[in-house]
Design a protein around this nucleic acid. Structure first.
Lengths: 208, 208
DNA sequence: GTCTATAGCTTGATAGAC
DNA sequence: GTCTATCAAGCTATAGAC
């Protein structure tokens, strides 16, 4: 069980994606614990004590590496940025067909992922929801940056397919994706991703 | 300023929507304070002390009317259910044109509302995001019930217009609406509601 | 039904040794 | 860089008087 835990940690920080497998630094260990706990229970529901215990360090060490909890929350989202993008890129790649089929396949993969008991919605949206009353919070900036990158990736996909109005279509698909994850979080019903996927596919097909 | 505060309170609990204007009971005062603070700062970011102080009662009185904070959070969302539905119904009614124009107008009203400094996304989604790690929480049930009612309302609208596949179209529009509110919360950019509104209008126009 | 007062615990962050 | 120990403040919830 401790072995599985460690494997999970490696997966969460994206270490095994073609990188050298050096042992985790203390900082990486802390971020891995933060990713696990903040995503699982919400950033306001997790104490610095809990993070330190999960990481196997003392709070003093934790505060040596991160000046405050706010900075650690921001580091949590920054650590999830590229791995999250890579996951969606992989989901798109692994679907056969043209762009509309690939987009719809991406939504189906979201539906499947949402069935796992550990799935708890989009960590970026959930963190933004918790911290929206503190403008300027570093984690809000990290979350907004990720969503912008995601939207840019969608735009480039659509433009590469030769479609006009790529920025608008990408924006609509992003809204459908974030909406699907939000509503599934509420109802625990993956069918919303299927419905959203059909709408997204139609957006990529229309007008030409 | 205290007067404006009280007016706001009346608006939030929906007392002035054609009801008699009896003075607020203590319970209603507490719920009004909860609505204000929980929506503004998040349910985990607001203490029972803060609610009591805002309501002008002691904590002992607060716990006389609500057995726990969890129940008060659920009461907050239950209090927002009908007023929220009424607001969206009004936004739809106030837009001229056919159903697709009305739906798009509803999204434009969301965009406008999101420009107000006090707007902080969808309170139901934000509360779900905070409490998703506590399955069975009474507030999660209240939030899910509201979203179901909203979806049913959209379904009835679309069916009344003579369109086929009303449940699917309603579901897609709900996802677009919740997605728009989520992404606007992240970027503070109402343009996402415009893009989502166009997609929603297209969904109501297609196929016949 | 509302009050004053407080129990019992957890929080984010820090002091100072090594 | 990591440790033990701890602070001052905040938290949910309750005791008991009126």
């Amino acid at each position: 069980m401790l072995t599985a835990q460690v494997a999970h940690v490696y997966s969460l920080v994206g270490i095994h994606h073609g990188m050298t497998q050096a042992p985790l630094t203390t900082r990486e260990l802390i971020i891995a614990a933060a990713v696990d706990l903040f995503y699982g229970e919400g950033v306001r529901g997790v104490s610095m004590d809990a993070i330190a215990a999960r990481a196997g360090v003392t709070k003093r060490t934790l505060y040596y590496h991160f000046v405050s909890k706010d900075e650690l929350v921001a580091a949590y989202l920054a650590a999830r940025d590229q791995p999250t993008l890579a996951t969606f890129m992989r989901w798109l790649d692994e679907t056969e067909g043209g762009l509309s089929e690939k987009i719809e396949g991406m939504f189906q993969r979201v539906a499947r992922a949402a069935g796992h008991p550990k799935w708890k919605g989009c960590g970026f949206l959930r963190t933004a929801a918790e911290l929206v009353n503190t403008p300027g919070h570093p984690a809000l900036k990290a979350g907004a940056l990720h969503k912008k990158r995601f939207e840019e990736w969608l735009t480039s996909l659509i433009a590469a397919d030769g479609l006009d109005d790529a920025p608008l279509r990408a924006r609509q698909i992003l809204v459908l994706l974030d909406g699907a994850m939000s509503v599934i979080m509420v109802h625990r019903d993956p069918a919303y991703a299927e419905a959203a996927g059909q709408a997204a596919a139609a957006i990529v097909k229309s007008k030409a």
